[in-house]
Computed example of a mutant assay.
Amino acid sequence: MANLSIRPAELSDLGTIVDVHTQARTAYYRAGGLPEAGIDTADGAAHRQRGWARSIESGDKRVLYVLHAGEVAGVVAMGPPLSSNTEADTATVGELYQIHVLPTHWGQGIGSRLHATLIQYLDEAALLIGQVEAWDRNHRAQAFYLRHGWRPTGHRRQGPDHSSYIRMHLNAVTA
């Protein structure tokens, strides 16, 4: 796709990144049938802003965004396995924390370009496995990951509205 560039995120990008995240999550939660009241909370945007700020300021996480024709169209965050995942070996596993593309840009290859930055990260860090969690009702995300070589591990954790998040792995050596 022409007119795409990927850049490291800075704190000055925070508002735009939170907006992309909010629009994407709203779309996939709606598509998954989550009741409107369960999609966000009064402090949801502030919570996302704090989380993205911590990731951007972190020395061990990488946050990038993609510009399409000069406008932010997607964002990705990656790094070592989250502390809640105690079984992951930090010497071999890198985690894709989040990847979000504006719904108006879905299906245009932007997610694949952001995914390629994860592959580059895993390669540069000499990590053998990529890890991600996808909401079990987000069939679009699961299909995206499967197309890119990810496979479910069988591990699930509690999600909203009696749902789960499905953990998936990617063999980075063959990706």
Rank of each mutant, 00 (worst) to 15 (best):
residue 118 L to Q: 04
residue 43 D to T: 15
residue 111 G to T: 01
residue 55 S to V: 00
residue 106 W to D: 05
residue 95 E to H: 04
residue 171 N to S: 08
residue 6 I to D: 01
residue 148 H to K: 07
residue 80 P to Y: 12
residue 97 Y to L: 10
residue 129 I to E: 13
residue 118 L to E: 02
residue 137 R to L: 07
residue 132 V to G: 00
residue 68 H to S: 15
residue 78 M to R: 05
residue 35 P to Y: 00
residue 20 V to A: 07
residue 139 H to N: 08
residue 83 S to M: 11
residue 123 D to W: 12
residue 44 G to D: 09
residue 76 V to L: 14
residue 56 I to K: 05
residue 51 G to L: 15
residue 65 Y to P: 05
residue 69 A to D: 13
residue 107 G to P: 11
residue 59 G to D: 03
residue 56 I to A: 14
residue 6 I to C: 04
residue 10 E to I: 03
residue 172 A to Q: 02
residue 104 T to G: 07
residue 23 Q to F: 03
residue 5 S to N: 14
residue 103 P to D: 09
residue 99 I to E: 01
residue 12 S to E: 15
residue 70 G to Y: 06
residue 89 D to P: 03
residue 163 S to Y: 07
residue 26 T to I: 03
residue 8 P to C: 06
residue 164 S to T: 13
residue 129 I to S: 08
residue 66 V to W: 06
residue 3 N to M: 14
residue 122 L to F: 05
residue 111 G to V: 02
residue 5 S to V: 15
residue 85 N to C: 09
residue 36 E to C: 01
residue 109 G to T: 06
residue 160 P to D: 13
residue 31 A to I: 02
residue 77 A to R: 07
residue 157 R to H: 04
residue 120 Q to L: 06
residue 115 H to D: 04
residue 172 A to P: 00
residue 57 E to F: 06
residue 42 A to F: 08
residue 169 H to I: 00
residue 11 L to A: 09
residue 156 R to M: 05
residue 110 I to M: 05
residue 104 T to H: 11
residue 170 L to Y: 06
residue 131 Q to V: 09
residue 46 A to Y: 07
residue 40 D to P: 05
residue 75 V to T: 07
residue 73 A to M: 12
residue 21 H to A: 09
residue 153 T to R: 02
residue 98 Q to D: 10
residue 61 K to R: 15
residue 45 A to E: 13
residue 61 K to Q: 15
residue 46 A to C: 06
residue 106 W to L: 02
residue 164 S to E: 15
residue 69 A to S: 12
residue 102 L to I: 06
residue 12 S to R: 14
residue 159 G to Q: 02
residue 50 R to D: 13
residue 32 G to N: 01
residue 149 G to Y: 00
residue 60 D to A: 15
residue 4 L to C: 13
residue 100 H to W: 13
residue 54 R to L: 13
residue 122 L to I: 05
residue 55 S to T: 00
residue 58 S to E: 06
residue 23 Q to D: 11
residue 60 D to H: 15
residue 76 V to E: 11
residue 57 E to G: 10
residue 79 G to Q: 03
residue 118 L to K: 03
residue 53 A to F: 06
residue 52 W to L: 07
residue 121 Y to E: 03
residue 87 E to N: 11
residue 118 L to R: 00
residue 152 P to T: 06
residue 88 A to N: 12
residue 40 D to Q: 12
residue 78 M to H: 11
residue 25 R to H: 09
residue 37 A to F: 00
residue 71 E to K: 15
residue 149 G to D: 00
residue 55 S to M: 15
residue 18 V to F: 00
residue 49 Q to R: 15
residue 40 D to M: 13
residue 121 Y to N: 01
residue 163 S to Q: 13
residue 140 R to P: 07
residue 93 V to G: 00
residue 40 D to N: 10
residue 127 L to M: 12
